[in-house]
């Protein structure tokens, strides 16, 4: 008779080993979590109610979440762009209660009760906003990364009435940087809509 491949001893020792191995990750994870609790402060969560592009959202967010990260990462509204994340480039410009602001320096929890509009909320269905149309017609962009912020800022610029001269437009659009250098097209787009 062929020698038996699996003995009782083999079974016991391998299954004990397997069980130990299976528990190691659990143990390590528990240990890691304990250390983490000591070293890294726990994130604070809070429930918030927001109105973005006229849609209502009930969300639970980390208190640290900026409006920019919220719309991009949690609501899949990725039109708003993250450039510098420090309020220097204007790529993240959105409207809060009709005013152009920087979503990277706005905590999501502080815009409760206000109406937020992102680039996705600018067009009426499939009909482009006049400023979007003007950017296409006047070559207001090259790579397009700064464009959503430029357009939101441009709409603000027109609404505020700072379009009396090229110099005034440039001054009141200075918060939006364009590394491709499409500034001439951007100024022309704004002049076209302001007329």
């Amino acid at each position: 008779m062929e020698k038996q491949k699996y003995s009782r001893r083999f079974f016991l020792s391998t299954s004990a080993m397997a069980a130990t191995l299976a528990f190691i990750p659990v143990g390590v994870k528990a240990f890691y979590n304990n250390v983490k609790k000591l070293v890294i402060p726990l994130k604070e969560k809070m429930a918030i109610k927001l109105s973005i592009n006229k849609a209502k959202y009930n969300l639970t967010v980390d208190t640290r979440t900026t409006l920019l990260d919220l719309v991009r990462e949690q609501l899949d509204l990725t039109g708003t762009k993250k450039g510098c994340d420090h309020g220097q480039c204007g790529a993240c410009t959105v409207h809060v209660n009709g005013q152009r602001v920087l979503s990277c320096l706005t905590l999501a929890a502080t815009v409760q009760g206000k109406e937020v509009t992102t680039i996705e909320g600018l067009s009426q269905g499939s009909e482009l906003h006049p400023m979007q149309q003007a950017f296409i017609e006047c070559d207001g962009f090259q790579c397009g990364y700064c464009t959503p912020g430029q357009i939101m800022s441009a709409v603000g610029c027109v609404n505020e009435g700072h379009t009396h001269s090229v110099e005034e437009i440039k001054e009141f659009m200075s918060g939006n940087l364009c590394r491709c250098g499409a500034y001439n097209g951007i100024v022309q787009s704004i002049q076209k809509v302001a007329k």
């Binding site: 005013q99 152009r100 920087l102 706005t106 800022s153 700072h162 200075s174 918060g175």
Partner: peptide, 9 residues
């Protein structure tokens, strides 16, 4: 000072 967006905030 600053930019229109920052002055709005």
């Amino acid at each position: 000072g600053a930019s229109p967006q920052i002055r709005n905030m």
